[in-house]
């Protein structure tokens, strides 16, 4: 006789329900419905908010973020030399471009490129090209940092995995890679010091 109005049983199901509302119950019913709604939604909101710390704990920690920027001293890098620095666990190519390399990059007609981008948009200072050294095809590290290594047909970098050729502005010229080498965010702190990240 004391059957409850379980949440599921309130659906128009007929036979399950035995409780019969008496007089004056209509008012009580709406008040209970309101209380029911507020209680359950408060619980739902609380549970959802309580999940946030657990989700956020998987984001990069303060330790990871503290190492999120790298400073590079440009002083010892000679013209024509390329060095690799690590930034957020990824290799970054810093190339001190020679005049010929700059000119080769600037002479290329942009509309012939797969990923059209003029050289001016890819560097802050013409003599310094700074790109992320990860092939945009499938994530290999292209070769060409050392003078003896193959630099591809355009004198930039060559990815040995699937044969992508990059030019002296790090732009894709031949092979399967879809995009130019990505650019990390960086600023020149002084003329000889650059901060990546």
């Amino acid at each position: 006789m004391m059957r409850a109005l379980g949440m599921w049983e309130q659906q128009p199901k007929g036979g399950m329900m035995t409780a019969t509302p008496s007089h004056g119950d209509a008012d009580r019913g709406t008040r209970r419905d309101f209380l029911e709604l507020v209680s359950w939604s408060t619980l739902a909101v609380g549970t959802a908010v309580a999940l946030w710390p657990f989700i956020d704990s998987l984001n990069p920690s303060k330790e990871v973020l503290a190492l999120a920027s790298t400073e590079v001293d440009l002083e010892p890098i000679e013209v024509g030399q390329r060095v690799t620095v690590m930034w957020r666990g990824k290799p970054v190519f810093v190339a001190h471009r020679s005049q010929e390399e700059i000119e080769a990059a600037r002479a290329t007609p942009v509309d012939e490129l797969r990923d059209p981008e003029p050289d001016e948009q890819r560097v802050q200072r013409p003599e310094w090209l700074i790109v992320i050294g990860i092939c945009t095809h499938l994530g290999c590290v292209p070769v060409g940092q050392r003078s003896g290594e193959p630099r591809g047909d355009w004198g930039g970098w060559f990815c040995p995995c699937h044969g992508s050729h990059y030019d002296t502005a790090g732009r894709i010229r031949k092979g399967p890679a879809p995009r130019n080498l990505d650019l990390p965010p960086y600023t020149f702190v002084t003329d000889t010091l650059v901060r990546i990240g």
Partner: peptide, 27 residues
């Protein structure tokens, strides 16, 4: 976030989880 090794266990709890992991202290 924890590292079960005698050289790192204490550091991973007191030095990392409690200080650097987002909400690590709470968890």
């Amino acid at each position: 976030h924890y590292t079960p090794h005698v050289n790192m266990a204490f550091d991973s709890v007191e030095g990392y989880i409690m200080r650097d992991v987002n909400w690590g202290w709470l968890i």
